[in-house]
Simulated assay, not measured.
Amino acid sequence: MAQTINSACNAGYSFLPIEGEKNMAVTCVRSSALDGWQRFMSSQGYRTESMKPFQNFAQADAEAERRIPLRGFVDFSECVVRDTKDVAIPWLVGRNYSLQSLGPVGDAVCASTSVGSALRRFVEYFALLQDCTDIRIDSQERTTSLSYRILDPNIWPRHQDAMFSFGILAQILCQGSTDGWDQVEFHFEASASMMTGDIQRVVDAPCSFEADTNMFRFPTRFLDRAIEPCDRAAPINELNRQIADKNRSSALVERLAQVVYRDLDQLGIDQERVAREVGMSSRTMRRHLATEGHSFQQVLDECRMRQAVFEFRTKPDLSIAQIALRLGYSEHSTFTRAFRRWSGVSPQACRKQMAQ
């Protein structure tokens, strides 16, 4: 799997380009994610017809079921903020986004009778809207956290899509009531300088930066707040069928990579547990991978190396030894040898070139 330093440090956006896999899926998002951007910005006096980000996606939002590259959408949101110098736009687009644009997922959310059920449905079926993204809700006795993180390490910067997604989640949260917003707090994986602008003022809540994931936290009691449901039934059976179909149609290496990327710096990567996550025994998983010409170790190594390049790019203050530990290597030297085999250069040389 040796690559040049340029390909290793400037990888494209196919999710897991393992040697021998010729047609890896590009990570995508439903094109209806674009809905509301032009309308909101036009209402603020922007001439979107002359703006390059909108020209690039001029036809995409005409087809609600069309899927567009996730990297393209993320770049779009970054370009909008960079061109307008208005960091509030993604957040406000999300806050004013029509949930009906989410299709059946939006119908399920809108048919909910409480904030908690609406948020859980959004999280549970988010995979039908956007690929390769870890979005979860974690409720404790006193506080609940909603976290959102794109797993594809080739997509960076990726700050404004998080603001957009949090805007939608905040819209759902506030359907019950806006009381208690002063008890909400935000955490972002980007640095404050990368986010640009006064994010704390935009979201009107305390913010911290350089976290492992994007997250906002609020009192758990907010989940019990009642909301007025729409007059359409929630298409739960259809959504469950779509989730099952999506899992069956996804390449096994893609599904495994998503689990590995999600847990790489948080949990030990245990082959048995990862196999259970994708709905099979480890023996069956190994057999399927072998049929496709892969092994679990190959998938794990590829994910580790691409995540390493991501860490070099986004965490310049971490030492090589610290990054090796985050990736599951007990020895710094073992990581260095593995990275050199994969890329043809040392981790230090790769990081140096990226810094230059």
Rank of each mutant, 00 (worst) to 15 (best):
I5S: 06
S7Y: 02
S7H: 13
S7I: 11
C9K: 02
S14V: 12
P17K: 13
E21K: 15
M24G: 07
V26G: 08
T27W: 01
V29Y: 05
V29N: 01
S31D: 07
S32F: 12
R39K: 11
T48Y: 08
M51N: 03
Q59P: 03
Q59L: 15
A64V: 10
R71A: 11
D75M: 08
S77L: 02
V81L: 00
P90S: 13
N96Y: 13
Y97S: 05
L102H: 04
S117Q: 09
R120V: 08
F122A: 13
Y125G: 07
A127W: 03
C132N: 15
I137Q: 07
D138G: 09
E141M: 09
T144K: 10
S147F: 03
R158D: 05
R158H: 03
R158S: 06
F164T: 03
L169N: 05
A170H: 12
A170R: 10
C174M: 11
Q175C: 09
Q175D: 06
T178N: 05
E189L: 07
S191D: 09
M195R: 07
D198I: 00
I199T: 13
A205W: 05
F209L: 09
T220M: 14
L223F: 06
D224W: 00
A226E: 12
R232G: 01
N240T: 02
Q242F: 04
K246I: 02
S250D: 15
A251K: 08
L252M: 03
G268C: 01
Q271L: 02
R276H: 14
E277L: 08
V278R: 08
G279K: 12
T291R: 04
G293D: 05
S295D: 04
L300V: 14
A321S: 10
A324L: 02
G328P: 09
Y329G: 06
S330R: 10
F335S: 00
F335Y: 03
A338K: 07
R341I: 05
W342H: 14
S346I: 04
S346A: 13
A349I: 14
C350R: 04
